[in-house]
C-alpha cells in the first residue's frame, strides 16, 4: 500500500515535471510544425540562469520568498531572449525549407548553445537549494516528501489550465487555432502569421526555460542536462501526439507513473520504460494518442 502511494506521488511529481518540459515543445510544434531541438538549450539555460539568480538573490537581505521571483524571472529572461533571437535571427529564414532541414538547424543551434553554456558557466555544477528549504517537508508514515517537489504538480496544473483557457477562451487562442488549421487561409484572412509565429515561439521558449528554472533548486545543475531533457520531451510528445496539449498531459502521466512504478519495483528497466511505452503506443497508434485531425488528401 505504502509502495503504491509512493509510486503514485512520485509518478505525479515526475509527470508534472515531464509535462512542464514537454508542453513548450508541443506548443511550438502544434502551431509552427517545427520540432525544436533547442528546447533542450532553453531548459538548460533556464536552469543555469535560475541557479545563478537564486544564488545572487540569497546574498541580499530581501525577503526569503522572493527567491521564487528569481526563478520565474530567470525563465522569463531566458525565454524572451532566446525566443526572439532564434525566431527572428534564424528560424524565419528557414520556414520555406523542408521540416528535416529545420530540425537540423535547431539541432545545430543546440550544439552551439551547449558549448556557449560551458563558456559562461563552466563545467562545475551549481546548486541553488534555498527555495526548496523554504517550503519544508511533509511526512506520511515512512514516506517523506518535500513540498517544493510537490509544488511541481500545482505548477503543471496552472500552466496546463492557463494554456487551455488561453486557447479556447481568448481571441488570441482562436487566432492560433485558425493558424494551426490552415496557415494560408489564415494569412489570406488578414491574420498576421509572422507575429503569431514569433509569439508562439517565445511562449514555447519561456515554457522550456521555466521547466529548467523551476527544477533547478532540486538538482545539481551541470552540463548535459539539456540532452537528457530533449530526449525525454520528444518521447512524451510523440506518445501524446505531436502538437496536442492534452496529449502532452496524458503522455506525461503515462510515462511518469510507469517510470515511478519501475523505479520502485524493477529499477533495472527504468531506462527503457519510456522508450518501451513510446514504441508500444506508436505500434498501435502511429500518430500518437491525441493526433490532430488530417485533411482529405485526394
Amino acid at each position: 500500500m505504502l509502495t503504491l502511494i509512493a509510486i503514485l506521488v512520485d509518478g505525479l511529481i515526475y509527470s508534472s515535471y515531464l509535462f512542464m518540459v514537454a508542453v513548450g515543445l508541443t506548443v511550438i510544434f502544434g502551431v509552427m510544425k517545427i520540432l525544436n531541438v533547442t528546447h533542450g538549450s532553453f531548459y538548460a539555460f533556464g536552469a543555469y540562469m535560475s541557479a545563478t539568480l537564486v544564488g545572487i538573490y540569497y546574498q541580499t537581505d530581501l525577503p526569503e520568498f522572493g527567491g521564487f521571483l528569481a526563478i520565474f524571472g530567470a525563465a522569463l529572461v531566458v525565454g524572451l531572449f532566446f525566443g526572439v533571437v532564434l525566431e527572428r535571427g534564424l528560424l524565419r529564414f528557414l520556414y520555406h525549407r523542408d521540416e528535416h532541414t529545420i530540425v537540423l538547424a535547431t539541432f545545430a543551434m543546440f550544439l552551439v548553445l551547449e558549448d556557449v553554456l560551458l563558456m559562461i558557466w563552466g563545467t562545475d555544477p551549481y546548486y541553488a537549494t534555498e527555495p526548496m528549504g523554504l517550503l519544508g517537508f511533509i511526512d506520511y508514515e515512512a514516506l517523506s516528501y518535500d513540498l517544493y517537489r510537490l509544488s511541481f504538480i500545482a505548477l503543471a496544473i496552472v500552466v496546463g489550465l492557463g494554456l487551455w483557457l488561453g486557447l479556447t477562451r481568448t481571441k488570441w487562442g482562436k487566432i492560433l487555432l485558425a493558424v494551426i488549421f490552415d496557415r494560408e487561409i489564415s494569412q489570406a484572412m488578414g491574420i498576421n502569421v509572422t507575429v503569431v509565429f514569433l509569439v508562439t515561439f517565445v511562449i514555447g521558449s519561456i515554457l522550456g526555460a521555466l521547466g529548467g528554472a523551476y527544477i533547478a533548486p532540486t538538482i545539481s545543475v551541470s552540463p548535459g542536462i539539456g540532452v537528457e531533457v530533449i530526449v525525454l520531451a520528444f518521447a512524451v510528445v510523440v506518445i501524446g501526439g505531436m502538437g496536442s496539449i492534452p496529449g502532452a498531459m496524458i503522455g506525461s502521466l503515462l510515462v511518469g507513473i510507469s517510470r515511478a512504478a519501475a523505479v520502485h519495483k524493477f529499477p533495472e528497466i527504468e531506462l527503457f520504460v519510456i522508450y518501451a511505452i513510446m514504441a508500444a503506443v506508436l505500434a498501435f497508434r502511429p500518430e500518437g494518442l491525441f493526433a490532430p485531425a488530417q485533411a482529405r488528401k485526394i
Partner: peptide
C-alpha cells in the same frame, strides 16, 4: 514498424530505438 512512418516521426523513432541500444550497452 518503421516503414509506416514518415517525416519527423521516422526520424525520431529511429532515435528512440538507437537510445534503447545505448541504454542496454551502458547498463
Amino acid at each position: 514498424l518503421l516503414r509506416r512512418y514518415r517525416a519527423i516521426f521516422f526520424a525520431l523513432l529511429n532515435m528512440a530505438f538507437s537510445m534503447i541500444l545505448y541504454g542496454v550497452i551502458v547498463k
